[in-house]
Amino acid sequence: MQIDATGTDVPGTDVPGTDVLGVAERWIAAGRPVALATVVETWGSAPRPVGSHLVIDGEGAFEGSVSGGCVEGAVIAEAVEVIADGAPRLLEFGVADETAWRVGLSCGGRIRVLVERVG
């Protein structure tokens, strides 16, 4: 489990200036269907800490990150399904060593991601 060294808001969830949960709220207010993906568990050198969010709309537009780019494509595809049928999904991904290397990590990791519809 990632420990937030500073006690700040969910560690590393947002790129500075990008409030993913705020984006989700604005998209809903604009009438867009929205799913929220959240990293709920990590093993090894997962690229993004527990609590990180990715928000996705029905067209596959997204903001935020759950893996620094490793598995976003798969999460977005699942999220579009979640928006369509309303059933949450709990996904597990292994982040391959090669991919992990590409995002600047020395070894691989695994993550579990909860994808749920908002609204």
């Binding site: 500073t6 006690g7 959240t38 909860l114």
Partner: peptide, 10 residues
């Protein structure tokens, strides 16, 4: 159960 904590920056 997943507990996602949001704490203000101290």
């Amino acid at each position: 159960t997943f507990i996602n904590v949001h704490v203000p920056a101290p």
